[in-house]
Amino acid sequence: MAQRIKTVLDVARSKGFRSGENPVTAIKDAQVLPKVKAKVKHHKAMHWKDVPAFYADLKTRPAMAAKALMFTCLTGSRTGEVLGLRWAELDFQARLWVCPAERMKGGEDHRVPLTEEMLAILEPLKAMQSEYVFEGQKRNKPLSNMAMLMLLRRMSVEGVTVHGFRSTFRDWASEVANARREVAEMSLAHQVGSDVERAYARSDLLDKRRALMEQWTKFAAGHQA
């Protein structure tokens, strides 16, 4: 708002409607106005202890939204990354999903290790022969970005967002798996360290992240206590 006022007053001065310095500039330089900090919006997350029962319920549901939500929970990926997933991004032999930079929030390619449980979700969907892995109601179009959230509501899972499962995974990684911070953060495609540190960090810790995702998948899918 202050920038808009400043612009209006500058234009007025240039047209001869006013004279003198712009008062907005003087106020900003004096730093007399309180700084307003935007509140961080936290996505409500399911407690990691509740994930196995929730995942077991999801596995009984045939809807495409359930398949997408299962995959989202296991990979810790963002909603848009999962819904925009194309078959060309998957390497089944290497058990790897490479989400391209243009679809990533950080603007860099992100490699996601695929576990047996993840592959079991994906394999049957090949038969649809769609461009998108998780096809919506329209042919060769992805699911709606509200599909998974609406599924949560139909399951009577209140106070939880799809994005919140990233926090669920992060809490589990810290509290249960005792994962190194950089491994857990990279699993979520978060940037770790300063610009200089990242410049020298040549590895995305794929092998360590694969081990962590294997452990998380076994827990979520109820294969271990």
Rank of each mutant, 00 (worst) to 15 (best):
M1E: 08
M1W: 03
M1P: 02
K6W: 04
V8W: 09
V11A: 07
F17C: 02
S19F: 10
E21Q: 08
N22V: 08
A30R: 05
V32H: 14
L33T: 04
V36C: 01
V36L: 10
K37S: 06
V40R: 13
K41Q: 01
K41L: 00
H42T: 05
H43Y: 13
K44F: 02
M46T: 00
P52K: 07
A63Y: 14
A65W: 03
M70R: 12
C73M: 08
R86T: 14
A88G: 09
Q93D: 13
R95W: 01
R95A: 15
E102A: 08
G107M: 02
D109A: 14
M118E: 12
L119Y: 13
L119P: 10
L119K: 10
A120P: 04
I121A: 05
L125D: 11
K126F: 14
S130R: 14
V133Y: 10
E135T: 01
G136I: 12
Q137E: 13
A147V: 14
E158V: 03
V160W: 07
V160T: 15
T161S: 15
T161L: 02
H163Q: 07
F165K: 02
T168D: 04
R170A: 08
R170L: 06
N178F: 15
S187N: 11
L188C: 10
D195T: 12
A201K: 07
R202C: 08
S203F: 10
L205F: 12
R209W: 12
L212K: 12
E214P: 01
